[in-house]
Amino acid sequence: MELLKAQLKLMPEWNAMLQQRYQILQTIALSKGIGRRSVAELLDLSEREIRKEFDQLRTQGNIIVSRDGTEITELGTYLLTELKPLVDEWSGRHEKEQVLRNLLSLQEVHIVPGNSDESVQTQTLLASEAARFIFSKLESRMITAVTGGSTIAKIAEQLPSSSKFQQLQFVAARGGIGKDVQLQANTIASMFAQKLNGSYKTLYIPDTLSESAYEAMKAEPFVQEMMDLYEQMSILVHGIGDATEMARRRNSTAEDLKFLKERQAVSEAFGYYFNAKGEVVHRIRTIGVQLEQLEQTPYIVAVAGGAQKAQALQSYFQQAPRQSVLITDEGAADQLIHH
C-alpha cells in the first residue's frame, strides 16, 4: 500500500484513473447482473469509456461478463476492500471524516461518495457501508434494535447472509408509522433476522397513541418485555428525519405542523423533535426506544445522507450520545462542513 501511495504521488494522473475504475467496480459489486449501459448512466460516463474499462477489468480477472449481466469476482471484491482506505484518502473523504467527527463530537464518521438526494447509487452505497459497519460489530447473543424507513430497509438488503453468529436478536425500535408496511421497524427487524439467522421481536402498535392508550400500553407485559430488551441492546440502527417531513408522514394535522413550526423544530428521531440547538421541543406519545436509553448503548449507528438532510443532522447531533457513529454521504458532509 505504501508503494502504491508513492507511485500515485509520482504520477498523480493515476489517481483519476484509480478513482474511476474503483467506482465502476463498486457499482458492479452493488448491482448484481448490471449491464454496461446502466453503469454508464449511473456514473455519467460514455458507453465507449465503460466498454474499455470493462475489457480491462475482465482481463484482470476482476469481473465476469455474461448474457445475464456483469458480476464482480472474488479478486475484485478483495481489491475493493484493500483499496478503500487509499481511495478515501486520495478523494479527500478521509479528511472530511476527521473534520466532521471533530465538528459533531462523534466516535466515528463514515462518508460515501455522492449525494443521496440525486443518486440511487449513493443511497445503495450508504446502506452498504452501514451494513459493513454493523456486521463488523456483531457478536453472538447480541441484541440489535432497528427503526423504520427506506434507508434502514436498504441496509437489511445489503447485509450478507450469514449464520456465523449464535442467538442474535433483532427488535423493532418503535411501532408502525405510515401505511407502507415494508418500511416499518417490525418488517425491517425481521429482514435483519432472516439475513443473519437470528430471531426478532415486533411491536405491533401504532406509532402515535392517545394519552389513555399510551398509559394503558405501558403496563402491558409485552411492552415491558420490549423495554427490557431496549435496556440490553448493544446496537441501535436509526435514521434522522426532517421534522416537517416526519410530521407529515405521521399524518399530523395543520395545527400540529403549526405547533412544530412555532417551536422551530428541525429534526426528528425516535419520536422526539429537536430544534437547531438540539433541544427537545416536542415528543409524541410512542412506545419504543427512549432517549435516555441511548447513553448505555455501545453502538448507536445513525444513517442519513443527502444535502437536504444536513440541517437535520446538525440539529440532532447537538445532543446525540458521543458514542454515536454517523454514516452519511458527501452531499450531507459538504453542507455540514461548509455551512
Results as ranks from 00 to 15, higher is better:
R58M: 09
D55Y: 06
R51D: 12
A40Y: 12
E53C: 01
G61R: 07
L57H: 07
R58L: 11
L45K: 15
Q56M: 05
L43D: 09
N62K: 10
L43K: 02
G61K: 06
Q56H: 13
I64N: 10
D55E: 14
K52V: 03
E53S: 09
S46G: 13
E53L: 03
L42S: 12
R51C: 00
T59I: 10
G61M: 06
L42E: 08
D55G: 11
A40F: 12
E49S: 14
D44F: 14
N62F: 11
R51F: 00
R37G: 14
L45T: 01
Q56G: 00
L43Y: 08
R36V: 02
D55N: 14
L57I: 08
K52S: 12
E41T: 10
F54R: 03
F54W: 07
R37P: 00
A40G: 03
L57F: 05
L43S: 06
S38E: 15
T59E: 13
R58C: 04
S38T: 14
S38L: 05
E53Y: 15
E41D: 15
D44T: 09
I50Y: 10
S38W: 00
R36D: 00
Q56F: 11
L57V: 08
L45E: 02
R48K: 15
R58H: 10
E41W: 02
L57G: 04
E47D: 11
V39K: 02
E41A: 08
I50N: 04
S46T: 15
E47H: 09
A40C: 06
F54A: 01
G61T: 07
R37N: 12
S46H: 11
L43T: 02
E47Q: 12
E47R: 13
K52C: 00
I50R: 04
R51W: 00
R36P: 00
Q60M: 14
E49M: 07
L43G: 04
F54S: 00
L57Y: 06
K52M: 04
N62E: 11
F54L: 04
R48C: 01
T59L: 14
R51V: 01
I50V: 15
L43R: 08
E49N: 14
L57A: 08
G61Y: 07
Q56E: 11
E49Y: 13
G61A: 05
R37Q: 10
R37M: 10
L42W: 02
